[in-house]
């Protein structure tokens, strides 16, 4: 991400305080050993490795962090967290950055991954359970990647792995309510309940 221009660090930053509060991790404990990056299976595809993300947060370089594809590519396999000598749950830090992106509505560097998660949650909201067929259809239409996923769908269908009819669950209405509470108030559980109290 070197631009040639010098960056101005802001070590006491909103970014760090948000991440620390959200993830309960001590960002300054990181001493940049790189064990996370070297163990990360997806590091090669990231524009900033996990170690670099930690450094950017330490230095308060928010724009660089929020624009990176790292936070979207992380699949929370927790390999980094389980090896970190500073005992930082780095996957949890990534999670808090995605929550920050959702809270602020900042655009995702990996649009499709963001879209996938939103679509997935939508099917749960709708049926109370995940429904792969609806998910695949909705995602495929929205991502406009129709042919890319056709082959897999066909195979699944012939193997009887694709259930066309969405599930009918009694708990679905409960799920809808929870979604509307959580969805309207952002990521905090207690906030979701507080709003409820105000109704």
């Amino acid at each position: 991400m070197a631009t040639g221009a010098a960056v101005t660090p802001s070590p006491v930053s909103d970014l760090r305080s948000f991440v620390e509060k959200q993830s309960h991790q001590h960002i300054l404990d990181c001493y940049q050993c790189g064990k996370c990056s070297a163990g990360c299976p997806i590091d090669y595809a990231m524009d900033l490795g996990p170690r670099q993300i930690m450094r950017y947060i330490q230095m308060g370089l928010k724009k660089e962090v929020m624009q990176s594809n790292t936070i979207w590519l992380c699949v929370a396999c927790e390999t980094c967290s389980s090896r970190c000598p500073a005992k930082i749950d780095i996957a949890k830090v990534m999670e808090s950055l995605r929550i920050l992106a959702a809270t602020e509505g900042s655009p995702a560097a990996e649009k499709n991954i963001d879209l996938f998660h939103r679509t997935f949650l939508n099917t749960i909201r709708q049926y109370g359970r995940a429904h792969e067929f609806s998910l695949a259809v909705a995602y495929t239409l929205k991502s406009r990647n129709i042919f890319g996923n056709l082959g897999a769908a066909q195979t699944m269908f012939t193997k009887g792995k694709l259930v066309i009819m969405p599930p009918k669950v009694g708990g679905a209405s409960w799920v809808k309510t929870v979604f509307s509470k959580a969805g309207s108030t952002g990521p905090d559980v207690s906030a979701a309940v507080k709003t409820e109290g105000r109704h």
Binding site: Q32, G34, S37, A38, R51, Q52
Partner: peptide, 12 residues
């Protein structure tokens, strides 16, 4: 042996 050269930012 796999690690990061954190000064280079490259995997070794």
């Amino acid at each position: 042996v796999r690690g990061e050269d954190t000064l280079l930012g490259e995997m070794i």
